[in-house]
Amino acid sequence: MAEKGGLDMTAALSDGEIVRQVLEEDPRRFELIMRRNNRRLYRIARGLLQSDADAEDAVQDAYVHAYQKLGEYQGTGPLSAWLAKITVNVALGRLRRAEPAGEGVSFDDPIRSEEANYMAQLSNTPPSPELLAARGEMRRILENAIDALPEAYRMAFIMCGVEEMSVAETAQCLGVEQNTVKTRYHRAKKILQQQLLELLDTSAVDAFSFDGVRCDRIVHKVLLRLEIGCREGRSQ
């Protein structure tokens, strides 16, 4: 694995150059791709799965899939968007396997009753002044509010509002029209603003924290899985 200093020295490398190096020179360069995209992919997976542990597992699966398909990356769009699409698909697959028979995962617009239930749930449990006084608790309140959004709104907000992905990238990842993404994002933001007021603007960037320990853990586990796969492939 490359030393920390080596990773820092490669900060100016383009995604396309790193992909080329992974494919043609040193597969361990894939670590650079992971460290550049870990937080975004974790947040996207977390938004769908609503579980820290499941999100970590999904990101690992997404990286393994991306590594195996890296030669198919055309470079016509951001590598981060390509990875985000893979992560969405992996997370959706996990949700579908966990859903009871007859229930599916969909990014269709939620029905009005879901919005009403969400609003009633938050209205019945207002945050206390003590909670609002602590930034850490405020961030947790925001995360809970985002988690409670209908799924279609939640993913639009996490991708556009939290991760600041473009409307086009978000639409491509979710498989919907750009106008649909815009509508869902603005609706999600309006709902959150009604409940959380200024908390949305002050704490959104801190939602779903991604510390160095989690980043290192994901990188380490993915590299182990890829090395095992390589050894198995050579032994056949």
Rank of each mutant, 00 (worst) to 15 (best):
T202G: 00
R154K: 00
D201S: 13
V181H: 07
Y185N: 01
I141W: 13
A188K: 14
A134E: 06
I191N: 14
N124C: 08
K85N: 01
A171Y: 03
L149Y: 12
L132W: 10
R184N: 11
L132F: 11
N89T: 09
A81V: 05
R94H: 13
E169D: 03
R94Q: 15
A116K: 01
F208A: 13
A152V: 02
A81Q: 14
V167S: 10
I191S: 13
E130M: 11
Q178V: 06
H186M: 13
R140W: 08
V105I: 14
N124W: 06
E137R: 10
C173N: 14
R94W: 12
V205Q: 14
E151D: 04
L192Q: 11
V105W: 08
V181P: 00
L132V: 09
Y153C: 08
A91D: 04
T180L: 13
E115W: 00
G212D: 15
K189T: 06
D109W: 05
E103I: 09
R135F: 02
V88C: 10
R140G: 07
R214P: 07
S166V: 03
R139P: 01
M165K: 04
Y153M: 13
M119R: 15
T183S: 01
V105N: 09
F107T: 03
N144T: 13
E164G: 05
A188Y: 14
E114S: 04
R217S: 07
Y185Q: 03
G212R: 12
H186D: 00
G104M: 08
T87P: 09
R94G: 12
A98S: 11
H186E: 07
A145K: 14
E99V: 02
G175F: 00
E177S: 04
K189E: 15
Q195E: 08
Y118F: 14
P110Y: 07
R140S: 12
D147F: 15
S128E: 15
L149N: 12
E130T: 05
L196C: 09
A207I: 10
E177W: 02
A204H: 06
L199Y: 05
R140M: 13
D109L: 03
A145C: 07
E151F: 04
A171Q: 02
I191R: 07
M165A: 07
A84G: 09
D147Q: 15
M159C: 00
V181I: 15
R112D: 08
N124Y: 01
S113Q: 14
D216C: 06
A98H: 12
A152E: 01
V219C: 13
V181F: 01
M155Y: 01
A145S: 13
L174W: 05
I218M: 02
E143F: 09
R96L: 12
E130P: 11
R135E: 01
A148P: 04
E103M: 11
A120V: 01
V90T: 05
D201H: 11
D108E: 15
E115F: 09
M138I: 09
R140C: 07
P127K: 00
G93K: 05
P110R: 11
I146W: 12
V181R: 05
Q178R: 05
P150F: 00
M159I: 04
G102N: 09
N117G: 12
D201E: 15
A91P: 03
V90Y: 03
P110V: 10
Q178S: 10
A171V: 02
M165R: 05
G104Y: 06
